[in-house]
Simulated scan of single mutants.
Amino acid sequence: MVLKNDRHTSSEAPVGPVVKPQVRGPLELDAAVVKALPVPGSKLVSAREYGSSLWGGVGKITVDVPGEGVKDYFLKTVNQGNIGRAMVHGEFESLNAIHTVFPDFAPQPHAWGQYEDSQTWFLLTEFRHIGKQPAEPVAFTERLAELHKKSTSPTGKFGFHMTTCHAKLPQAVNGWEDSWAVLYRKQMIRMIKLDEETNGVWPEFKAVSQLLVDKVIPRLLEPLQSDGRSIKPCLVHGDLWDENTAMDAVTGKPFIFDPCCFYAHNEYEMGNWRAARVRLSAKEYIEGYKQSYPPSEPQEEWDDRNLLYSLRFDLGCAINIPGPSNPQRPIVKDNMTLLCAKFFPEELRSLQNTLAKRPQE
């Protein structure tokens, strides 16, 4: 991932195509993967490395399937202990959820499990041929809106039946909430805690984030489900950016992959599109989606909600790729401050005065 400042400091999205994944050298398969091939009697033709991943390995497996001929599968491996298990299992369940609602919009998952001779976890799915990335705006946003509209929470609530992971970060979605504001607040509390554990204590950040979770989140999200308003819990991908969507080079249709799903407010999906570090920040994606799925009421607060949702993704970026070269943490603080200043200016001033009076370390 190329890290750039978001819209708060830059108005330009990346230019040029996303580099397509390439087939590389041979890949040694563990016996557990061979046993997991979905059709008994399949004979391995080849296994090659394919593309790259920040958190593990990826490969293309070609087999001779009885009665079907040569067929390809996609393999992902992660060897980060219990977190690796959660990542792989969560992605399997996420793909299954999407595939059940909208079969050709995501690869079909086949199996997940553990290597026989190591602590490596694997995911085996249908292989899809990557075309243009990201996917074409109109077709992609129409299909994404269709997923959101067609999906139905099994409980009628927000959440998921298990933990899913944004990259290697376990999300606070394992459970069910009637209130979207409550679930999103849990998400932000989890992320703020992980940020502090990863990047250290920053008193100004800690103070403004507390005001955000205590005041701003209820103020912006509770109106979605009050005064006769309601929102539908929608199945969201959870981490849509340039390299998690593409045109299928065979079918010519957009598809999505590498998800960390849960049932959420549909607008949450576009929080990741606000940052100009991603091509999906381009106007044609955001406006295209709005045409297929109009903003929730109160519509005039769409941009405020989008800024609020962007905090979750930018903070995840700061945690997953820590260090002084990543500008996301200061950007999150600035954007938190903007929201606090708009909706709770007196509380923010009081907070800032208190911080200014504290002894300097």
Rank of each mutant, 00 (worst) to 15 (best):
T100E: 14
G90M: 09
G271Y: 04
R277C: 15
D30N: 07
V138F: 08
K168S: 05
L124N: 09
D227H: 11
P170T: 10
P21Y: 02
L123A: 05
S11R: 06
F160E: 03
G25P: 11
P254T: 00
E116N: 13
K342Q: 12
Y285S: 12
R274C: 10
N306W: 00
R219M: 09
R358Q: 09
K215H: 11
P134D: 02
P233D: 02
V2E: 08
L37Q: 01
L3G: 05
P203K: 09
E126N: 00
F343C: 10
T125Q: 04
G228T: 01
F255Y: 05
F74M: 02
A32R: 03
N199V: 05
V173A: 14
E116D: 14
H265R: 08
R219I: 05
M247R: 00
S325T: 09
G59L: 04
R143G: 03
R24I: 14
I231R: 09
E301M: 06
E136N: 07
N244V: 00
Y50N: 08
F102N: 13
D314K: 11
V23T: 07
M336F: 12
G90I: 13
N79Y: 13
L220H: 04
E177Q: 09
K157M: 15
P170H: 03
L351M: 09
T164C: 08
E177K: 10
E93R: 06
L95R: 06
L224T: 03
G67F: 03
T354K: 14
G57T: 15
N335S: 13
P107V: 04
G323M: 12
P298I: 01
V45Y: 07
A276Y: 11
V213T: 05
R279D: 03
N335H: 15
Q114P: 02
P322G: 02
D195Y: 04
A31D: 13
V201G: 01
Q291N: 09
R24H: 14
A172D: 14
Y289M: 03
E68G: 00
V236E: 04
L224G: 10
G57N: 14
L54I: 12
W176D: 15
T251R: 08
E49D: 14
G200W: 13
A246L: 06
V63P: 05
F92R: 10
I256R: 01
E177W: 08
R128C: 03
H148L: 06
G41P: 11
K132W: 13
D64V: 11
R128I: 00
T141L: 09
P254G: 00
V33G: 12
W55T: 01
K283D: 15
P103T: 01
G41R: 06
K232W: 03
K342P: 12
L44E: 05
V2D: 07
G51Q: 02
E146A: 06
Y184V: 12
R219E: 10
F344P: 12
P103Q: 07
G90P: 09
E68Y: 00
V332N: 04
S310H: 01
L315V: 02
V101H: 03
E126M: 01
A249E: 01
R128E: 00
G113P: 11
R358V: 06
Q119K: 15
L27A: 00
S10L: 15
